[in-house]
Design a protein around this nucleic acid. Structure first.
Length: 857
RNA sequence: GCCGGGAUGGCGGAAUUGGCAGACGCGCUGGACUUAGGAUCCAGUGCCGCAAGGCGUGCAGGUUCGAGUCCUGUUCCCGGCACCA
C-alpha cells in the first residue's frame, strides 16, 4: 500500500509529526504566539516598492465579531497577503469606530462606564481578530473614542468653522426617542431610526451645528463619474441621494398685494413648459406665507394646522408617499406671470417645505399628483401638451390624462405653442429671466449635515457661549475638550453633558468672563470620515496626520482598495468623500477622493434570513474557530460563494473546508521528506512520465487561475475550487508517487507552490506546512508563484462533436490542430457516421479548439 | 411607481468572449481499511428510462449551426429610492 510506504518515509524526518491528522487547535496557537510580534506587519515607507493601501471598514466595538466581519476581513486579508507576496509595500491597518450610543445603553443597563465597556469590547474583538490570523499593522491602531483621536475631530471642526463651513441654526430635525437624540437625514430610513427599525422618528425644532456639505454638492455628484472602480450600485445610490434636479423658479405675485418681495410666491418646477396649464398654486403647510395668509382667518388656520398634523404624522409613519392628498383653498389668488392668469392659492398636505421652494404650481393635466388632487376637488384640467405628431397632417388627439411625457408639443401656450417640451423649457426659462420673474435653476436633495447629538459618548463640540461675545470657538491650544469621566447618563432630558457643571462652566477665551460650553457631541460619522488618514500617521500629537505620510499612502488617487458593507454606500461614503475634498482644499491631501477602488461584500444569511438574535440563527465566529479552526472558518467565508454575493451559511460547508485542509496537510506530511533534498528547478515537460506531466500541468494551470482571480474578479470561491482540483490530482497520483514516477524536484515544487497558493486563505496551515517543507520565515516575504504558460498548456484537447446542435461524441485531437484536421477526425468518428447516415450534410461548423457542429438535413 | 441585483441538481454554488450545463464543496449510495467509524481512501451521483434515447438553467416567445449567456414580453425574490414638484 502506497500510504504505508510514504508514512514510513516521512517518519525518517525529525521535523515531521508522526500523526498525520490535521488538528487546527494544535497548529494555530503555535503560530498565533509567533504572530504576536508587533513588527510583523508594520508598514513603513519604502521608495523601492510600490505602495498598496488595502483597508477594511473599521468595526463598531459592539462586543464580539460576527460572521459579516469575518467575511469582510477575510477578503481584505487575502488581498493584503497576496499583494505582500507580490512585492508591494502594503499598509493594512485596523481600528475602532468606538463612539456611539450602545456604550451609553450599557452604562444604563449594566452600570458600566462607557469608556470601560468600550475598551473591554475592543480588547475582546482585537483578540478575536488576532486569533483569526488577520495580518494588521497594530502599531497604527486607531481608537476614535480616545482623546488622541477625537481631539482632531475638534480641530477639524474649528477649521470648518474658520472657513464658514460649520454653522449653527435652528431647524426641524429628526428625533429618535429611543436614541434620545437627533439623527441626520441620512440616518432616517423610511421614517424610522436606522438603529431602531421599529422606532418612528419625530420632528423637533432644535438648535444644531451643521457642516456645509452642500458647498461640495456639485463636485460630489460630478466626481461620482470618476469612481469607475466602485460598484455601480453604490454610485447610483450616491447620485440618487444627492438628487440633482434641473428646473425653473417662477415668481407668482400675490394678487392685490404690493410689489414687496414677501408677496411673491416662488415655485420650483421641472416642467415650466406646462405652466399655461397651471390651475392653482400649492403651498406647503409650513410655508412662511401660509402663516400670514391665515393670520386673521381662524377657520383657515385650523384647517392648515390639520394639514401640518397630517403631514407630520405621515412623515413619522414613513410613508408620506401614501398620504391622502388633502388641501384647503385660501381664497387668495396668485398671478401666473406668463399669461397673467389669476389662479387660486391652496395649501396642501403633500407639498414638502424642505424640497424646492415649498411651493408648486399645480398642472393637473400633466402631473399625476396634481391630477389626483384636481379630481378630488373638481378643479379643471386644461390641456397644454399634446402628443408630438409624427405626421404633420395628423389631427391633434386629446391625450389621456394625466399626460406627463416630455415627448410632446405645446398648445394653448401663447407664443410658446408649437414648441416641443424640452425646447420650450429652455426658451421659457430664458424668457422668465429676461422679464425678471424667474430663472433656470438646479436643486438638490442633499442637505447640510447636522452633526449635533444630544448624547454623552461622542466628541465634544469645541464651542463656547459667552453672554458678551456670543459663540466663541475653543482656541486650538486648548484642545482637546475632554469628555468628563463621571457622568450620570440617562436617555431623557437632553444632553447628559449639560448636567455636568464642571464641564459646562468655562471661561470665555475672549473676555475672560464666564461662558457655557456646548454640551452636544458630534455625530459618530465625523469619526469615520477621516480615520483612514490617521492610519498613515497614527501617533502624531501635533496634527491629525503628517502631510507627507498621507501623501505617500494615499498618493493622487487614494486608498488602493477599500472593502466594506454596502450599508455604508450613502452615509459613511458620502461624508468621507466630503471630508477628503475639504482636506484637499485645506492643502492637507492631494487626492480628490478617499478611495479609488471600493468593494462591497455580500451579506451573510442563514436559512434564508439575515442572522439575528431574534431568529436564533446567529453563527458565532468563536464557536466556529473552536470547532474547525480559524483557517477553516475564514476560508469558508471565501469558498461558499463569490465575495460580492449573499452568502448562505452552512456549517457542513465549513466541515468541507476543514476536510480539504486535512487532505492538504496529510499530503504534505507524507511527501515533504520525499522532496526535501531536491533542487528547486522546474523540470522540462518532455522529460516527465505522463503521470508527472499531469501534475505539472495542473500546478501551472492552478497558479494561473488563482492569480487571475486576484487580478480580476475576486471570485475566490473558484480560486479555492481550483486549488482543491490540484489536491485531488495529487491524491490521484499517489500511486505514481509511490512508484517514483514523479521526480522529487517536481514533487517539491508542487508542494511549495500549493502552500504559497493557500497562504492568503489559510495562513496558519500554510505557515505550518511551509516550515515542514524545510522553509523558514514569514510567508509574506515569500514570492507568489509564477506560472509557465508552456507548462500549463494541454497536449491534447477534447472536442465535443454535435449533430444539429446535439452532442453526439467527444473526440481527442492534439492541441493546436487545424480546423481541417479536427473536421476529419470528427467526421470519421463512428457515432457521428451513424448519426449522419442517410442524411445530407449541409455544413460543418468547426470552431478550432472548441467544438464541431455537423448540420444535416 | 422608479433604479439596481438575482432565479441553474436534494443543498451552497461553477460556467470572462454565445460553443461538452452542473467545476468545486455539501449531502446521499456503494466499496476498501477497521475492534469501531461521525476518521480516512476509492467509485458513483441533474431528471426520466432496463437500454437506446429523451428532457433539462423561473415562465412564454425570438435571433443563431449552436443560447444559462443575446433580444422581446412576463412572474417571483432581494436591496435601494420614493407625493423630490
Amino acid at each position: 500500500m502506497p500510504q504505508e510506504e510514504n508514512i514510513t518515509v516521512s517518519r525518517e524526518n525529525q521535523a515531521l509529526p508522526n500523526d498525520d491528522r490535521y488538528d487546527a487547535q494544535r497548529i494555530e496557537p503555535r503560530w498565533f504566539e509567533r504572530w504576536q510580534d508587533a513588527s510583523l506587519y508594520a508598514a513603513e515607507r519604502d521608495s523601492t516598492k510600490q505602495k498598496y493601501y488595502v483597508l477594511e471598514m473599521l468595526p463598531y466595538p459592539s462586543g464580539v465579531l460576527h460572521m459579516g466581519h469575518v467575511r469582510n476581513y477575510a477578503i481584505g486579508d487575502a488581498l493584503a497577503r497576496y499583494m505582500w507576496m507580490n512585492g508591494y509595500n502594503v499598509l493594512h491597518p485596523m481600528g475602532w469606530d468606538s463612539f456611539g450610543l450602545p456604550a451609553e445603553n450599557a452604562a444604563i443597563s449594566a452600570n458600566v462606564p462607557p469608556r470601560e465597556w468600550t475598551l473591554r469590547n475592543i480588547a475582546n474583538m482585537k483578540a478575536q481578530m488576532k486569533r483569526l490570523g488577520f495580518a494588521y499593522d497594530w502599531s497604527r491602531e486607531v481608537t476614535t473614542c480616545l482623546p488622541e483621536y477625537y481631539r482632531w475631530n475638534q480641530w477639524f471642526f474649528l477649521k470648518f468653522y474658520e472657513k464658514g463651513l460649520a454653522y449653527r441654526k435652528k431647524s426641524k430635525v429628526n428625533w429618535c426617542p429611543k436614541c434620545a437624540t437627533v439623527l441626520a437625514n441620512e440616518q432616517v430610513a423610511g421614517g424610522f431610526c436606522w438603529r431602531h427599525e421599529d422606532t418612528r422618528v419625530e420632528q423637533r425644532d432644535l438648535e444644531q451645528w451643521f457642516l456645509r456639505i452642500t458647498n461640495y454638492t456639485e463636485e460630489l455628484l460630478r466626481d461620482v463619474e470618476k469612481l469607475g472602480n466602485w460598484p455601480e450600485k453604490v454610485r447610483t445610490m450616491q447620485r440618487n441621494w444627492i438628487g440633482r434636479s434641473e428646473g425653473t423658479l417662477v415668481d407668482f405675485k400675490l394678487d392685490g398685494a404690493s410689489d414687496s418681495p414677501d408677496s411673491i410666491i416662488t415655485v420650483f418646477t421641472t416642467r415650466v413648459d406646462t405652466i399655461y396649464g397651471a390651475t392653482s398654486v400649492q403651498l406647503a403647510p409650513e410655508h412662511p406665507l401660509v402663516a400670514r395668509l391665515t393670520k386673521n382667518n381662524d377657520p383657515l388656520r385650523a384647517s392648515v394646522e390639520q394639514l401640518i398634523a397630517e403631514q407630520r404624522k405621515a412623515k413619522e409613519v414613513g410613508d408620506i408617499g401614501a398620504i391622502e392628498k388633502h388641501g384647503v383653498n385660501t381664497h387668495r389668488v396668485a398671478v401666473n406671470p406668463y399669461n397673467g392668469e389669476r389662479v387660486p392659492i391652496w395649501v396642501a398636505n403633500y407639498i414638502l417645505m424642505d424640497y424646492g421652494t415649498g411651493a408648486i404650481m399645480s398642472v393637473p393635466a400633466h402631473d399625476e399628483r396634481d391630477f389626483e388632487f384636481a379630481k378630488k376637488y373638481g378643479l379643471p384640467t386644461p390641456v397644454v401638451i399634446v402628443p408630438r405628431p409624427d405626421d404633420p397632417e395628423e389631427t391633434v388627439v386629446e391625450p389621456a390624462l394625466p399626460f406627463t411625457t416630455l415627448q410632446g408639443t405645446l398648445v394653448n401656450s401663447g407664443p410658446f405653442s408649437g414648441l416641443d417640451c424640452e425646447d420650450a423649457i429652455q426658451k421659457m426659462s430664458a424668457y422668465a429671466e429676461e422679464h425678471g420673474f424667474g430663472k433656470a435653476t438646479v436643486t438638490f436633495r442633499l442637505k447640510d449635515w447636522g452633526i449635533s447629538r444630544q448624547r454623552y459618548w461622542g466628541t465634544p463640540i469645541p464651542m463656547l457661549y459667552c453672554a458678551k461675545d456670543g459663540i466663541v470657538p475653543v482656541p486650538e491650544k486648548d484642545l482637546p475638550v475632554l469628555l468628563p469621566e463621571k457622568v450620570n447618563i440617562t436617555l431623557s432630558g437632553g444632553s447628559p453633558l449639560a448636567k455636568v457643571p464642571e464641564f459646562v462652566n468655562a471661561t470665555c477665551p475672549k473676555c475672560g468672563g464666564p461662558a457655557r460650553r456646548e454640551t452636544d457631541t458630534m455625530d459618530t460619522f465625523v469619526d469615520s470620515s477621516w480615520y483612514f488618514y490617521r492610519y498613515t500617521d497614527a501617533r502624531n500629537d501635533r496634527e491629525p496626520f503628517d502631510k507627507e505620510q498621507a501623501g505617500y499612502w494615499f498618493g493622487e488617487r487614494g486608498i488602493d482598495q477599500y472593502i466594506g458593507g454596502v450599508e455604508h454606500a450613502i452615509l459613511h461614503l458620502i461624508y468621507s468623500r466630503f471630508w477628503t475634498k475639504f482636506m484637499r482644499d485645506m492643502g492637507m491631501v492631494k487626492n480628490d477622493e478617499p478611495a479609488q477602488r471600493l468593494f462591497t461584500q455580500g451579506m451573510i444569511i442563514k436559512g434564508g434570513a439575515k442572522m439575528s438574535k431574534s431568529l436564533g440563527n446567529v453563527v458565532s465566529p468563536d464557536d466556529m474557530i473552536a470547532r474547525y479552526g480559524a483557517d477553516s472558518t475564514r476560508m469558508y467565508t471565501l469558498f461558499a460563494t463569490a465575495p460580492d454575493r449573499e452568502l448562505d451559511w452552512q456549517d457542513e460547508g465549513v466541515e468541507g473546508i476543514q476536510r480539504f485542509l486535512g487532505r492538504v496537510y496529510r499530503f504534505v506530511v507524507r511527501n515533504a521528506a520525499n522532496g526535501s533534498h531536491a533542487t528547486k528547478e522546474t523540470l522540462q515537460a518532455t522529460s516527465l512520465q505522463p503521470e508527472a506531466r499531469v501534475i505539472q500541468r495542473k500546478l501551472h494551470q492552478t497558479i494561473k487561475r488563482v492569480s487571475d482571480d486576484f487580478q480580476g474578479r475576486w471570485h475566490f470561491n473558484t480560486s479555492i475550487a481550483a486549488i482543491m482540483e490540484l489536491v485531488n490530482e495529487l491524491y490521484a497520483a499517489e500511486g505514481a508517487i509511490a512508484k517514483d514516477r514523479v521526480p522529487k524536484p517536481l514533487l517539491m515544487e508542487v508542494q511549495r507552490n500549493l502552500v504559497l497558493l493557500l497562504a492568503p486563505f489559510a495562513p496558519y496551515l500554510a505557515h505550518e506546512l511551509w516550515e515542514m517543507l524545510g522553509e523558514k520565515g514569514n510567508l509574506l516575504k515569500a514570492s507568489w508563484p509564477k506560472y509557465d504558460p508552456a507548462l500549463a498548456k494541454e497536449d491534447e484537447i477534447e472536442i465535443p462533436v454535435q449533430v444539429n446542435g446535439k452532442l453526439r461524441c467527444v473526440v481527442v485531437v492534439p492541441a493546436g490542430s487545424s480546423e481541417d484536421t479536427i473536421r476529419e477526425v470528427a467526421l470519421a468518428d463512428e457515432k457521428i457516421k451513424a448519426a449522419v447516415a442517410g442524411k445530407q450534410i449541409v455544413k460543418v461548423i468547426v470552431v478550432a479548439g472548441k467544438l464541431v457542429n455537423v448540420v444535416v438535413r
